[in-house]
Computed example of a mutant assay.
Amino acid sequence: MAAADSTDIETVDTVEPSDAAAAGNEAPLPWLFRDRGLAWALIVFGGVGLLASFSLTLEYLHSLTEPDAQLVCDINLFVTCQPAMSSSAGAVLGFPNIILGLICFTITVVTGVVLLTGSKLPNWYWICLQIGLIGAAVLITYLQWFSGFQLRALCLWCMIIWAFTIPLVSITTIGNLAQGRLGKAAIPAGRALTQWAWVVIVIWYLAVIGLVLAGMWDAIRLSMI
């Protein structure tokens, strides 16, 4: 009995402290990067993107039925929807980008609602969502370059979509990294980035502004002469 008791004591002494250390090794993630925080980010940023895509769809349909009509988003020479909608960049995949926006932002919002119910999504779903987010980042970057350097005009609804896609991609990607959904090796980088998420977003915004201004600078300068 004494031997058995000593074995039990040794097991408690050697296992429980190590488990406690492992559990307390990392601080809890900030709220925004946990499931409930990510859910609200998906709903809010995705919801605004969906509304902007819907508004752009209405403008697109309006331009088809009344080609000479003045659209709500036709504000001035530099902020107008018509050039973007009628350009090749308006249908990158062979169909209007607005269809892609309606579908993808709807998926984003629904994902957020599902998370709010407390449901756990499988890892393959998060990987697919992450691939979609990377595709969205690539697409808006191309459209930003095209708007600045080719069209030299900006679409109002497109800019709203860009503005809300950037934090949507940034926050969800960092959250996925920090929670290990993209591989355990990426967890330290993800957790570190949670403290710098807003810096990443601001730098991205500044990069977009710089890109667009670089492309439109001559046109803006000439308009002021």
Rank of each mutant, 00 (worst) to 15 (best):
T106R: 05
A197W: 08
A192M: 10
Q130C: 07
A207F: 11
S223C: 04
I9D: 13
S88T: 09
L121F: 07
W217L: 13
L42N: 08
I201E: 09
Q130T: 13
R34T: 06
A89D: 09
Q70D: 13
I140T: 10
G46M: 08
V169K: 01
P17G: 10
I131M: 11
L100Q: 06
A52R: 02
I99S: 06
L56G: 01
V72F: 15
A39Y: 07
A153C: 10
C158Q: 10
I171H: 03
L71C: 02
I98S: 04
P167R: 04
G183V: 06
G49D: 10
L77F: 05
G132M: 08
R34C: 03
T165D: 15
Q144P: 00
A185R: 10
N176E: 11
A185W: 12
C155Q: 06
L154M: 13
L211C: 12
A84N: 05
A219D: 14
I134G: 07
A163G: 13
L182N: 03
G118W: 07
E10C: 03
F146R: 01
T65V: 12
I75S: 04
I99K: 02
T111R: 01
S18G: 00
T172K: 01
A39N: 06
L42E: 05
V12I: 15
L77C: 02
L182A: 04
R152P: 00
